[in-house]
Structures are given as C-alpha cells and as structure tokens.
C-alpha cells in the first residue's frame, strides 16, 4: 500500500480519509477495501522515512486534520518504483510443499489433496464470476483486475493438472 499512497499523493496532497476513498473509487469492488487504521499507520511510517510530510489544517468545529504531501525523497522512491519491472506472481509454493511432502509422510493422499485444491480454485472462480456480474460494465479498472485474477486462477488450475499427470 505504501506506493499506492505515494502515487496518490503525487497527484495532490490529501488526508487519510481522502486516500481511502480514492483507492475505493479507482479500484472498485475488486479491491480489498483498505481500512483507515492501516492507512494512517502506513502514512506514519512514510513520514518517519521522510517520503511524505504532514501539515495541520484547522477545521471549524472539528479537530485539526493532517494533510499529507510528497517530499522530494518520496518523489524519487515513486520514480524508482515506476521504472522497475514488477515481480511476476509466484507459484503456490505452500500447496506444492504439501503436495510433495504430505504423501511421503502418510498424512494425506495426493489425489485427495489435488481434488480438494481443484474444488477450491473452482469455487474461487465462481466468486470471481459473481463479482464480475455485480461490477458495473463501465468500471474498467475493476473488471480488468477481476479478469487478471481469473487468468491467474486458470494458470493455477492448469498447473495442478500437470502435477496430477506427472507426480506418481
């Protein structure tokens, strides 16, 4: 979340609640709604690292609010982030460990593990289908995010099939 907050602040200074709303508005239903506490914690760390600064803005009838803005150091971090290629998704190594090790130790049968995992992926896929149905057609960012998740799931499922074929 650090870098998404920096990116939003590069656009304009904002307070914590505005950042939360902006994230929700841009990414829509597909984004796990960030909680306000996490946002303030992250902003506090960014401030400590010198990437953002805060000014107190007075409000009538209310406590002051803190408006955050990007520092030059924050701008550099953001540029470095934008220039870098991003790590690809990793394989589900936890499941793979289970798949390889569990049968050796007699804890679980490989076919049962694979079947359970396949059903889990399909259930996730069904959720994604429903999420896509409920998402507004015009909300391209959210729909692309959902489609990306679907393609990743498909790859996980194809790989499961490969494991099923090639592990004894």
């Amino acid at each position: 979340m650090r870098l998404s907050l920096l990116a939003l602040l590069a656009k304009e200074p904002a307070h914590g609640y505005e950042l939360k709303q902006a994230l929700e508005q841009i990414f829509g239903r597909a984004y796990p709604s960030p909680n306000i506490g996490q946002i303030y914690v992250t902003l506090g760390r960014l401030e400590k690292d010198g990437l953002v600064k805060a000014v107190d803005v007075e409000q009538s009838n209310r406590p002051n609010k803190k408006v955050y803005y990007l520092t030059a150091k924050g701008r550099e971090a953001l540029d470095a982030w934008a220039d870098e290629p991003t790590e690809g998704p990793r394989v589900r190594d936890e499941f793979f460990m289970k798949l390889v090790l569990a049968p050796m130790t007699g804890i679980a049968d490989r076919t049962a593990l694979i079947n359970r995992q396949r059903r889990h992926y399909l259930a996730l896929m069904r959720d994604l289908n429903e999420l896509a149905e409920r998402t507004d057609r015009g909300d391209r960012v959210a729909l692309l995010l959902i489609e990306g998740a679907m393609l990743h799931l498909q790859a996980d499922l194809d790989w499961l099939e490969r494991c099923q074929e090639d592990l004894p």
Binding site: A30, P32, S33, L122, D127, L145, I146
Partner: peptide, 16 residues
C-alpha cells in the same frame, strides 16, 4: 462446486 472455504477474516474483496 461448493462455496469457498475461506480462512477466517477474509472477505469477498479478498478474492483479488
């Protein structure tokens, strides 16, 4: 195809 067996605390948005 049953419902998703979720870990505690997860919500619908966490699908992504």
């Amino acid at each position: 195809v049953g419902p998703v067996r979720r870990r505690p605390r997860a919500s619908a948005g966490d699908v992504v």
